[in-house]
Design a protein around this nucleic acid. Structure first.
Lengths: 128, 128
DNA sequence: ATAACACTTGGAGTCGACTCCAAGTCAAGG
DNA sequence: CCTTGACTTGGAGTCGACTCCAAGTGTTAT
């Protein structure tokens, strides 16, 4: 798969894909005879995972660290688990915060709806 | 309340508080005789709301628009409701995404835990 | 075979949201 | 009176994460 196809498939710009490779978030992608990137399944899986994690706000730095550890084999299993757990906990806390804001937003909307209804009644009364 | 106290109370830097005022996210704060900001309850409430919304990722621009509308009175009630509803829906979608990533993260952690347990068993077997 | 087009590179530019800085003013304590 | 320390201003700098650009090479269709 060429870069344009990968970009299309995952909704990530070609610039971003190359950028990820540059900073080490994705390992060097294999090239065909004329130096053009040829993404395979391994790459695709990695990209999908990165997309998901980035979308949830995990910093690029953290992901790089994770992949660096993974690349060192079983000796780093515990460290990787710790890293993932930390990010999981941060995410959990984040979700709780967003949920709280969601509740507030819903309450505010409710208030606006009520105000609108009240206005309608008053207009009806005036026009009667 | 002086700016340092507000900063302390809400965990927002004085720089950020002044920045918010500059860009119109908070209306001009009243000053005492010598030009120093004196925050009151109205200001505090606004700051708290802004903090909550910003924390949930609502862009500054959107919040400014909301306050601009609010300042124009009842005629903008419907517009404000629409704005809030749009942001609420975005937030809802965001939470769902984060939840999906959370699930994936939990699964990954599980995989690591299993690998660790397997290693332990192997070590035990070697050392027996 | 020549135009059109996807790909390559390194480096510069952009964006939102702060964050820091220099230079100055003012109130209070020793 | 003089220092200390919190406050003021406008403007510049930083950060993470892209995003864009110029200049060049390779592939494909007419």
């Amino acid at each position: 798969m060429k870069i344009a196809e990968v970009s299309e498939k995952y909704g990530i710009s070609t610039d971003t894909l190359r950028y990820y490779e540059r900073v080490g978030l994705i390992p060097p992608v294999p090239r065909n005879g004329s130096g053009i990137r040829d993404y395979g399944d391994t790459e695709a899986k990695r990209i999908e995972f990165v997309k998901c994690m980035r979308n949830a706000g995990l910093p690029i730095e953290v992901l790089i660290e994770y992949f660096d550890l993974a690349q060192q084999g079983d000796a780093t299993l515990a460290a990787r688990k710790a890293l993932l757990t930390e990010q999981r906990d941060l995410l959990l806390a984040r979700i709780a915060e967003l949920q709280a804001t969601l509740d507030l937003l819903n309450y505010k909307i409710e208030v606006h709806v009520n105000a609108l209804l009240k206005n309608e009644r008053e207009i009806a009364w005036v026009e009667d």
